Deep mutational scan, measured.
Amino acid sequence: SKIRITWGDKTWEWDGDDEEVWKRILEWARNLGDEELWRHVKEWVDK
């Protein structure tokens, strides 16, 4: 399956939905430097 994140007018996609993928997404969000996006992603990961 895919994980799709839409933020503003951008959309990103990742293949898979296991823990490793979420770790990569969390790292990606942090590297993007958008605090609010990172917080949202972290909330999803922690669920």
Rank of each mutant, 00 (worst) to 15 (best):
E35S: 07
T6Y: 09
D17S: 14
K2C: 03
V41N: 00
W38V: 13
G8C: 06
W7H: 07
G16E: 11
G8R: 10
A29H: 01
R39G: 08
G33M: 09
T6D: 06
H40P: 02
D18G: 14
D9M: 01
E20S: 14
V41L: 12
W38R: 10
K10H: 10
V21C: 03
D15P: 11
W38I: 15
R39P: 02
W14I: 04
V21W: 05
D9I: 01
D34C: 10
W22T: 06
K23Y: 13
E27N: 08
G33T: 05
W28K: 01
R24I: 14
G33V: 06
D17P: 09
G16S: 13
W38N: 06
W7L: 06
L37E: 02
K2I: 07
I3R: 02
D18K: 07
W44P: 00
G33K: 05
W12S: 03
W28M: 02
A29C: 06
G33A: 09
E36V: 05
W14F: 08
K42D: 04
G16Q: 14
V41A: 01
V41M: 05
R39W: 10
E20W: 10
I5L: 12
N31C: 08
D34E: 05
W7R: 04
R24N: 14
L26G: 02
W38L: 15
E27L: 08
E36R: 03
W38F: 15
R24C: 06
K42Y: 11
G16H: 15
W7T: 03
G16K: 10
D34V: 06
V21G: 05
D9L: 01
K42E: 09
D18F: 12
E13G: 01
R4N: 07
K23H: 11
K47A: 13
V45G: 05
W12R: 02
T6S: 11
T11R: 02
W22V: 08
K42F: 08
L32V: 14
W28F: 06
T11F: 12
W28T: 01
K47T: 11
E35N: 05
V21H: 03
L32D: 06
V21N: 08
E36K: 04
E13R: 00
G8S: 03
E19Y: 13
T6K: 08
E13Y: 05
W44E: 05
H40Q: 14
S1Q: 14
I25A: 03
V45A: 15
D9N: 04
W38E: 11
W14C: 02
